Simulated assay, not measured.
Amino acid sequence: MRKILITAILFSLLLQFARPTALTAATQPASDFYGSFQVVGYYPDYWWTPIPDLRYDKLTRVIFFSIYPNIDGTLNTSEIDPNRQAELLSDAHQNNVDVSICIGGWGLSDNFSPVAADPATRTAFVNNLLQYCLDHGFDGIDLDWEPVSTATDRANYTALIAELKAAMLPHDLTLSVAVFAAGSEFYSSAIDDIDYLHIMAYDMSSDPSLPHSTCEGAVQAVKHWQSFGFPNSKIILGVPFYGRDGSWTYYSYKQIVQQYSPPPDVDEVAGIHFNGIYTIKAKTKYVMDNNLAGLMFWELTQDTNDHISLLTAMTDQIHASSPPDLNTDGNIGLQDLAHFASNWLSTGCSTANAWCANADLNQSRTVDFADLSIFSHHWPASD
């Protein structure tokens, strides 16, 4: 009780001068409040969602999908529009969000095997890919060779990863690698060369009539890659923003809610298995509780932009699972209390208002006495 009283007294003093300015609220990216935690969304060019509609306030990185290798080590960029690529890079960087280029993907990986097998072609491919990033201003590369089916390909993929990371290192570019939930795409010697492992913990069921991306399956996928040797600091769990029915037909989350309006605790409707709001929050909490590097999802254009958004559910849970170290400096102190006071009685925290959302500790969409009570139990303290 004494602690709450002291907090309240200091809080009342701070209220006299700690009001936010429009400039501060507009320029502070939500990613600042995640610390080192990663929230990564894939953006496939072919859906043509307007670039300004992407929700940069909730992201740390966007992965632009996709280019792929030609058999001679050059790059095939026919799947993307260069103007949209430039627009994405410009808008994301203005919003303090990094952008990686994806190379490969399902149905776009046939040439990885011959390219990686020949040392000269592999080096040419690495040089071409690095130059593409530098020419266009990408912050990283996301490798997505799928499937990798032979021991020879795994060995060559391991060599490709090592050579690519060595080339990227002087330029401070991030290398992520997308993998299957129970995969073995490369050998463990590649672990040190990979910055982030993107576990595609979806489409996991061999029976299309069963759920393809359960919480239990996600945990098993993480444990599989932990046993492979990856530290938690490199593991990013992938979640689906889509569903599948018994014939393996694909439905975006947006389509599902428009047609069926499922409640938040439901993961199946009309035979379509998907991840609802409660499941996305549960997976997010698991990632937070186990100190994994973050979450990624396929893909950005399949979400809604309202109160039932899966991305909003994800970021709400990130805030709810985090101690109120609001400036993520490793301590809960006066600066955090001042930040909290600056948002006192703010409402509408479901909008793109990162300051408000971060101070709304119980995710009620209003910064109020309940949040002050939560804050007082943590302050003052050190992580």
Rank of each mutant, 00 (worst) to 15 (best):
S206R: 08
S206L: 06
D207N: 14
P208C: 09
P208M: 14
P208S: 09
S209T: 15
S209Q: 10
L210E: 14
L210R: 10
L210V: 09
P211V: 06
P211N: 11
H212K: 12
S213Q: 05
T214G: 09
T214A: 13
T214Q: 06
T214C: 10
C215I: 10
C215E: 12
E216L: 07
E216W: 03
G217M: 10
G217R: 04
A218V: 03
V219N: 01
V219C: 05
V219D: 05
V219L: 07
V219H: 01
V219I: 15
Q220K: 14
Q220P: 03
Q220A: 09
A221S: 14
V222E: 02
H224K: 05
W225H: 10
W225A: 12
Q226V: 10
S227R: 08
F228Q: 07
F228P: 13
G229M: 09
N232E: 12
S233N: 15
S233W: 06
K234F: 06
I235N: 05
I236R: 00
I236D: 00
L237P: 07
L237E: 06
L237T: 08
G238K: 03
G238I: 04
V239I: 15
V239Q: 06
P240R: 02
F241W: 10
F241K: 03
F241L: 13
Y242K: 02
G243S: 10
R244M: 11
R244C: 05
R244N: 13
R244E: 11
D245G: 07
D245N: 15
D245I: 06
G246R: 06
G246C: 12
W248V: 14
T249N: 13
T249Y: 09
T249S: 14
Y250W: 15
Y250T: 12
Y250I: 14
Y251K: 02
Y253S: 02
Y253R: 01
K254D: 01
Q255F: 01
Q255S: 13
I256F: 00
V257E: 00
V257A: 00
V257D: 00
Q258K: 08
Q258V: 05
Q259A: 15
Q259S: 15
Q259H: 08
Q259D: 11
Y260L: 07
S261A: 15
S261I: 07
P262V: 01
P262D: 01
P263M: 04
P263S: 11
P263G: 05
D265K: 01
D265P: 09
V266M: 11
V266T: 14
E268S: 15
E268F: 06
V269N: 00
V269S: 01
V269T: 05
A270V: 02
A270Q: 13
I272T: 02
H273W: 09
H273F: 02
H273S: 12
F274M: 05
G276M: 00
I277C: 01
I277Q: 02
Y278P: 03
Y278K: 09
I280Q: 08
K281P: 03
K281S: 13
K281A: 14
K281I: 04
A282Y: 04
T284L: 13
T284D: 11
T284N: 07
T284G: 11
K285L: 13
V287S: 08
M288S: 12
D289K: 06
D289R: 05
N290H: 15
L292I: 10
L292D: 05
A293M: 10
G294K: 02
G294Q: 05
G294F: 03
L295E: 07
L295M: 15
